[in-house]
């Protein structure tokens, strides 16, 4: 377990330091949420209706933002080759890197969500619901994104392509996340159904993401 903790600490430090890390993601999240009322109008009733969706889309975009550097930076300076040659399973390396990436970028998004929810006029129940769904769902976004990051790791400017590859796979997360958040304040479905689906998708991504991204890293390194 020791090497995993060490790797986690290293990854977290780098993610928190490089380019502002956590703050830059939250800042981008804030910018996206701010832009929405300018696009759709300042009608508070409507904002309350689409608020959960705005927060979720903002979180999705903010997560995609830094994903292209997830493995690429380590590949460029040779760290990735060292990690893979160390004999540790690539799946676990991916898992630890994802955990650190989520802790540095996903978690700050979840923490800042209640504040940003005020801008889109969400009521307290909805704020709690959207924060909970983001807490459950953003790890899935990072893990699914890791597959895209692994597949595009050898590309010099793979950022946009990565987003195009990852967004279709992230649609179920978005659907169930937003559905659960809106169901909490009186939708046609109970809150628990979409939330449990969201949990299932996150658990599924917990397996699929590391396996696929690990395979992609093995391919890229040999």
């Amino acid at each position: 377990m020791n090497w995993m903790t060490a790797l986690f600490v290293r990854e977290f430090k780098i993610a928190a330091r490089v380019g502002g890390g956590a703050l830059i993601g939250v800042l981008f999240f804030l910018a996206v949420v701010t832009v929405f009322p300018f696009g759709v109008g300042p009608d508070l009733k409507m904002l309350a209706r689409i608020g959960a969706a705005v927060l979720w889309i903002g979180a999705l975009l903010a997560t995609l933002l830094g994903l292209d550097r997830l493995f690429q930076a380590d590949r460029e300076d040779g760290t990735l080759d060292l990690l893979l040659m160390s004999g540790r399973p690539p799946e676990l390396i991916v898992l630890v890197k994802c955990a650190a990436h989520w802790a540095a970028t996903g978690l700050p998004l979840v923490i800042s969500a209640p504040v940003l929810a005020l801008f889109v006029n969400l009521e307290p129940t909805a704020i709690g619901a959207v924060t909970l769904t983001l807490l459950v769902g953003t790890p899935a976004l990072t893990l699914i994104g890791a597959v895209g990051a692994g597949v595009t790791v050898s590309l010099r400017r793979g950022g946009v392509l990565l987003s195009i590859l990852v967004i279709p796979l992230a649609i179920p997360v978005l659907i169930f996340g937003v559905s659960a958040a809106t169901a909490a304040v009186g939708g046609p479905t109970p809150f628990l159904t979409p939330l449990l689906y969201l949990c299932a998708i996150s658990l599924f991504a917990l397996v699929l993401g590391p396996v696929a991204a690990g395979a992609a890293l093995r391919v890229a390194s040999d």
Partner: peptide, 28 residues
């Protein structure tokens, strides 16, 4: 070829989930 193979297989695993979630979203 290998990168695409991984992406394609991840896609094929995800297609039923996408289909299911879109159906669910649609009935909603």
């Amino acid at each position: 070829a290998k990168a695409n193979a991984i992406l394609t297989l991840v896609g094929v695993i995800n297609l039923p989930i996408i289909k299911f979630s879109v159906d669910w979203w649609n009935t909603l």
